[in-house]
């Protein structure tokens, strides 16, 4: 490697060694995917109808879940960051529960609430004839459940970092709380919202456990890419590698594109 000469800092070996191992640990599996990919049969495998269906379903549900998270998560983050209310610490802890909960447990919990005989599900079914489990909407719900904490945490952090005196200035100019929120607060934390949405989308795209538990594994309806990868692994390892490669390429491409546009300015 040739690089312009610069002042070399001495890096202690005790830090350099684990850092290098860590990097290797993260990169090696990705390299493995590339090495073992069936490059010769790749075009034919890509053209198989099931692949594109699963990819489109993954992108659509991840995007819908992200929109749902933004619509509900940004106000929730605002509440946590700006309003003093009793039990705020408890609420903040509750918001992060899906982060530590195994996704499969999350899926079971969703079934108990939104399932056909669940707490809300039975009411939804009898009143509106709506049943969420094992539908595409159920996939969105499962992904949103797991991904929302990422958005709330990112936006709450951005709100705490934003100077609340801008909101006071807006108030002295005649803006009520809602106008202040839409005209001042939201534009100020826009980079944080964007960063949170990107994290949220990436988490939703990779969601597996809650989705398969709550929404099942029906091709074209609830079978997203991670589910397709897992299923393919049982029967055809080559196909699983191809699907993994596609998921990897698409998510890295989209994240890199968004990063340059928004997250870099955060």
């Amino acid at each position: 490697m040739t690089r312009p000469a610069r002042r070399r800092q001495r890096v202690p070996l005790a830090l350099l060694l684990p850092a290098g191992l860590g990097l290797l640990f993260l990169v090696l599996p990705l390299a493995g995917l590339l090495v073992r990919a069936p490059w010769t049969t790749l075009p034919r495998r890509l053209a198989q109808p099931g692949v594109l269906t699963a990819l489109r379903l993954s992108l659509e549900t991840a995007t819908a879940a992200t929109l749902l998270c933004v619509a509900l998560g940004v106000p929730l983050a605002w509440l946590l960051a700006r309003v003093e209310f009793p039990g705020r610490r408890l609420v903040r802890a509750l918001v992060t529960v899906p982060l530590v909960l195994p996704p499969v447990v999350g899926g079971v919990a969703l079934l108990l609430v939104f399932g056909r005989r669940g707490l809300l599900g039975s009411w939804l079914d009898t009143t509106f004839g709506v049943s969420l489990p094992f539908t595409t909407a159920g996939v969105v719900l499962a992904e949103a459940f797991v991904a929302m904490p990422f958005l709330v945490i990112a936006v709450e952090g951005a709100l705490r970092g934003a100077d609340p005196r801008y909101e006071e200035a807006a108030a002295t100019l005649g803006a009520g709380r809602w106008t202040t929120f839409t005209r001042v607060t939201l534009p100020l934390v826009a980079p944080g919202v964007a960063a949170g949405a990107v994290l949220c989308w990436a988490r939703a795209l990779g969601e597996f456990g809650a989705t398969i538990t709550f929404a099942g594994n029906y091709p074209g309806r609830t079978q997203t890419m991670p589910l397709a990868v897992y299923l393919a692994l049982e029967t055809d390892v080559q196909a699983a590698i191809v699907l993994s490669l596609i998921l990897l390429t698409v998510s890295v491409a989209i994240l890199a594109g968004l990063r340059d546009r928004w997250v870099g300015t955060a």
Partner: peptide
């Protein structure tokens, strides 16, 4: 409330 006061800051 501040938004309804005829005050400029």
């Amino acid at each position: 409330p501040p938004e309804r006061r005829p005050v400029g800051v």
